[in-house]
Design a protein around this nucleic acid. Structure first.
Ligand SMILES: [Mn+2]
Ligand SMILES: [Mn+2]
Ligand SMILES: [Zn+2]
Ligand SMILES: [Zn+2]
Lengths: 130, 130
DNA sequence: ATTATTTTTGCAACAATGTCGCATTTTATA
DNA sequence: TATAAAATGCGACATTGTTGCAAAAATAAT
């Protein structure tokens, strides 16, 4: 029922597609691309639907995209605090949030104002590192 | 002669294409995509050549890509210090390095090791902010 | 519960990037 | 200058993002 409640909370109509996709996010720590989700919903959900659902989830604030160097956009459920670190493992390829890392304050040059931020550290994750 | 010296320094053969592209980076503060460069080299340089040149420049360390949410990869000449902030203006769309911003230290969770990082702040730049 | 209205979906089609093989041209080496 | 090595242009194709449109599903109204 968790997924359904999230949709209700954000005033989105309840559809099986959205429930399926949200369920996948709820059961996954890692950031997911459109393709990642497609692979889990073959024959269940159309590509365009996944694309539009992801867009809607992003716009409503259910998920947020993670900036990476590649061309693929990956999403994760939003977490607190708002400004936190992301980690990309060059070994297993996984991308994840590290909300527990405390980001210290930094000062932008005068004239620059911040709306949001995307901090990505690239390296080897705890799982691949032993 | 600056461009040529950079190619020599990195042991890359001197070609007009590479000189052209490097010249563009030297004369541009902002991060550039393959398309940005194409537009400046219409009829001079093939798309595939620009693609491969950018790749080579990245691999040799002449430029580095900037992680953004979009699907387009943008590059800038490498700057010191290695770990610095990037800024994306939602108004004019430009992406730039802010190497003057001092990033304070942060601690990764145990088991995680860092190779590199990509810090992006999104907001309004000094130019668009008045 | 039915019907009407609003949204979402599936499909198809297309644009933009990234990516590569291969023959030809250019650059570097001998 | 001749030879070997590397880069380029062209063409082709894969992937991702994106949208129009009619059918299907969900929500609101009766
Ligand atoms: Mn996150
Ligand atoms: Mn930079
Ligand atoms: Zn890993
Ligand atoms: Zn700006």
């Amino acid at each position: 029922m968790k997924a359904k409640n999230i949709l209700l909370k954000y005033n989105l109509s309840i559809t099986t597609g959205r429930l399926n996709i949200l369920e996948i996010f709820l059961n996954n720590e890692m950031a997911l691309s459109e393709k990642d989700i497609q692979d889990k919903l073959i024959g269940v959900c159309d590509r365009a639907t996944i694309y539009r659902t992801l867009k809607k989830f992003k716009d409503t604030g259910i998920v947020h995209p993670i900036a990476t160097e590649g061309m693929i956009t990956k999403y994760v459920l939003k977490k607190e605090p708002e400004e936190h670190l992301h980690f990309k493992c060059t070994d297993c390829g996984k991308i994840m949030c590290l909300p527990e890392v405390q980001m210290k304050n930094y000062e932008l040059p005068s004239g620059f104002t911040k709306k949001e931020s995307n901090f990505l550290v690239i390296g080897t994750c705890n799982n691949c590192n032993n």
